[in-house]
């Protein structure tokens, strides 16, 4: 089977790759492009570890084909924050000890960024429901939600 050629944009930079039409965007990010910050926890859209944005929409990259990224804009954890400075959300996750093992963290940060872009002033309940698709088995979510709410507040103040 011939591979498909895809031109896309990842974290604002033009990227081209070849992929099998059956490969998921997650496969491409991790195995072709070595963007291993995006994690695979389930491969079925049930854990959120592979969360990325596709044309600004939060999606599970395990449920998107690599070929579907043609002409699209993809955002991954590697694009959160500047090269020399963490994003406020990243800072707040560290400050609040919102991670233990950290494997769900990239997905949670990508999702939190999408949440706060859509809704800069979420209630705790709104944050919990928006992030329900990001499983964390270590923290019990308490410190994650505190980090999200604090990041939201800090971002509102800075806006």
């Amino acid at each position: 089977m011939a591979k498909s050629h895809v031109s896309t944009s990842i974290n604002g930079e033009p990227v081209e790759y070849l992929c099998d039409p059956g490969d998921t965007l997650l496969d491409v990010l991790r195995n072709e492009l070595q963007l291993t910050g995006t994690k695979e926890g389930c491969g079925s859209g049930d854990c959120g570890a592979c969360s990325v944005t596709l044309n600004g929409r939060l999606v599970c990259s395990c449920l998107v084909l690599g070929v579907e990224a043609e002409g699209a804009e993809v955002g991954t954890i590697e694009g959160v924050g500047a090269n020399d400075k963490l994003h406020v959300i990243q800072e707040k996750f560290l400050e609040h000890a919102a991670l233990q093992c950290g494997v769900c963290t990239p997905g949670l940060i990508v999702s939190t960024k999408a949440l706060l872009e859509e809704n800069p002033n979420p209630t705790e309940e709104e944050a919990r429901y928006y992030l329900a698709g990001n499983l964390c088995r270590c923290t019990g979510y308490d410190k994650i939600i505190r980090a999200v709410m604090d990041a939201a507040e800090t971002m509102r103040e800075g806006a």
């Binding site: 291993t36 954890i77 924050g81 963290t105 990239p106």
Partner: peptide, 23 residues
């Protein structure tokens, strides 16, 4: 004290390498 964990930066940026991340 509540210090910032030393491995934290790698984990919030996606740089940290887990079991499946080495090729």
């Amino acid at each position: 004290q509540r210090t910032i964990r030393p491995d934290g930066y790698d984990k919030v940026t996606g740089r940290a390498q887990y079991g499946a991340d080495l090729s």
